[in-house]
Design a protein around this nucleic acid. Sequence first.
DNA 1: CAGTTATATTTCCGTCAAGTTATGTAATGA
DNA 2: TCATTACATAACTTGACGGAAATATAACTG
Lengths: 103, 103
Amino acid sequence: MIPNLFEVLAEPNRRTILDALRAKDRTVGELVALTSLSQPGVSKHLRILREAGLVSSSKDAQKHLYRLRAEPLADVDRWLAPYRPYWLDKLDALERHLNEEES
Amino acid sequence: MIPNLFEVLAEPNRRTILDALRAKDRTVGELVALTSLSQPGVSKHLRILREAGLVSSSKDAQKHLYRLRAEPLADVDRWLAPYRPYWLDKLDALERHLNEEES
DNA sequence: CAGTTATATTTCCGTCAAGTTATGTAATGA
DNA sequence: TCATTACATAACTTGACGGAAATATAACTG
């Protein structure tokens, strides 16, 4: 219940859905085709993504259009920020300064 | 097996461990104190982090020192990159251009 | 060597996530 | 109204994960 953002993103099919929604809004049926999951399976993931604020939906007749809402991903970006210096070559010196031992 | 990086990061205690290792290398005992987990629990998480390439360890007598290896997190950063424009205010126009409907 | 410290591994258990099938609901169309 | 389309929800099964407890291993200490 109320899974954290990382848990939401840990599921590969959910990332596939998000990636697909970057290009354009999609119906559930389209996403089913993209994920090779059953329709209920996709709906389940969409619910989790909706509850995480990562997608929103609007109804167009029977079709439900899902749209990417990437704002929550800024939290991941903020978590990641302090780690970024570690993999940037220019700051290897900093990394070695913060630690001392060699493996 | 071989859980993907997002799965590894989904576990809160593992993120706690990584965050702690940003400051300095730590022994298992220190990490036990920081996570309120049992020692075997921490060792289990450390194994997963090691297999993901996110930490390395070196032995100093009985003590095992764990060190952050943040390089794999660059993959998360790369996954995140295409989403970044969506939450940057300056690019709201781009976002509206890529989609059309309103929720 | 015996005991202690520090950590890893094993075993077991409860929980929960993810998938499927079945069913419900809403809108369209003949 | 009845059938069909599109999707959501419910019910159920299964497998993996996270945790603790017990045990193993390795190094230091007296």
